[in-house]
Design a protein around this nucleic acid. Structure first.
Lengths: 238, 238
DNA sequence: ACAAAAGTGTTGAGAGTACACCCATGC
DNA sequence: GCATGGGTGTACTCTCAACACTTTTGT
């Protein structure tokens, strides 16, 4: 009926004898820059796609976990550690890299822009920040990856409270609302936004204020460490 | 400041020169069996974990996509094609396989039990169906994988309507409710369940009835092909 | 007639939504 | 005193959640 046996895991087989794909980890690095959601990209120097922009990434080393590889890539580009990062998806179309078979595990990192080390010139690779709403031509299937990352980020914003991961440790409610508005690309009602965020009990006042010079100073909030960031959504079946 | 350059994607490098991990695809196959949510497992014959049960899977061939590999594995075990399947997560701890580095991309398939070909004995590998609520000892990190798959399935049930993917083409509302109750492990109110499912407009009556001999015959429904299965959840920020 | 499963409505509570004005500060 | 951004409350609507009886069939 089928070629069942030959296709099973060859448990008694040395896997190193198999022709196998390369595995990379790519990291979509999001930050809020100048009232815009931007991603950090790297300019490719060599073929294929020489001169085009690409998501930072690299091969998974034989003794590091996927998370470690992603954290390493992130630190290499931004010198940032310990920020919000999660696995997005694994892309593995056979022809996505014209040179050879490469399967890439993609992570998304949310980075407060003020935490980034912009070491200009100490890296051989040219990097740049690009608006997610005005992307350049991208290498490989990286456009598809970025689009998917944005979709997932927006979706996640709707039922969790990850927005503050893109802000400094202390922020005002207006800062947070602006972050949501930038990412969701729509304006939100100030009163309803505040009521919801505050009733979720994930923020606490720092006691400090932020003054822009102009206007009334605003209370600064921080994320409550032990809070449950996941807000209960309406259940389909109660 | 950092060893940035050496860790970037070596674009000008032949990736085949890298020491690299193996990549497998594992498929968690769920079905409803005898009022229970069960997963199909394979008994391992060789070390490591000889005699223990494992999720079916195998190496990704060099010219097939991840989805094709997953569909192939599913067909090998069940002879089922064209069912609901989605990528769950990629597991890659360096020590998860004691022999060598193996990164596994895990898919979840939802299979109507009546569609499965139970070709007994025509396969060298011994297979079995196990209740998700009473699992045997499992090889590798497969217990963790199954637990995560169940969590995601439950979560997904709460905001989409994938439940019917585990049922035959035609089913009654009581069948569907029972599926939800089995997976969520709680009982649901019949009137509220029906109202919600029907108001979602994803089902249509077939006109046929199902009679069990006892009791009043029930209307049979089918999934409306063009329906939007994703039910809008309560948005955190309207 | 009775056992067994299908099918059907209403009400009270809580959350969502829309909406406009006063407050504190710097210049 | 005025420009700028921060901060607050209420009424209506809609969805959720809880709850019990009638209908259709087989035996």
């Amino acid at each position: 009926m089928m070629d069942t046996v030959t296709n099973n895991i060859p448990e008694n087989y040395d896997p190193s004898a198999f022709a196998r794909p390369s595995v990379t980890v790519d990291v979509v690095i999001f930050a809020l820059v100048a009232e815009d959601l931007q991603a950090l990209l790297i300019k490719r120097k060599h073929s294929p796609f020489a001169g085009m922009w690409a998501i930072p990434g690299g091969f998974v080393r034989i003794n590091e976990s996927l998370e470690e590889a992603a954290a390493r890539e992130l630190a290499e580009e931004t010198n940032v550690r310990n920020v919000y990062m999660e696995q997005l998806y694994t892309f593995g179309q056979p022809d996505r890299d014209p040179r050879t078979r490469v399967i890439t595990v993609v992570y998304v990192a949310l980075v407060p822009y003020d935490a980034i080390d912009h070491h200009p010139g100490d890296d051989a690779a040219e990097t740049g920040w690009f608006s997610m709403f005005n992307l350049p031509d991208l290498a490989f299937d990286h456009r598809e990856i970025l689009d998917y990352a944005l979709t997932r980020l927006r979706y996640k914003l709707e039922y969790t409270a990850v927005g503050f991961e893109l802000l400094p440790d202390e922020f005002t409610l207006s800062d947070l609302q602006k972050a949501y508005e930038i990412i969701l690309h729509e304006s939100l009602d100030k009163r309803n936004f505040r009521r919801k965020i505050l009733s979720a009990n994930i923020l606490e006042e720092t006691g400090r204020m932020k003054s822009l010079g102009e206007g009334r100073p605003a209370k600064l909030y921080r994320y409550q460490q032990n809070a449950i960031a996941e807000i209960k959504t309406r259940r389909l079946f109660p």
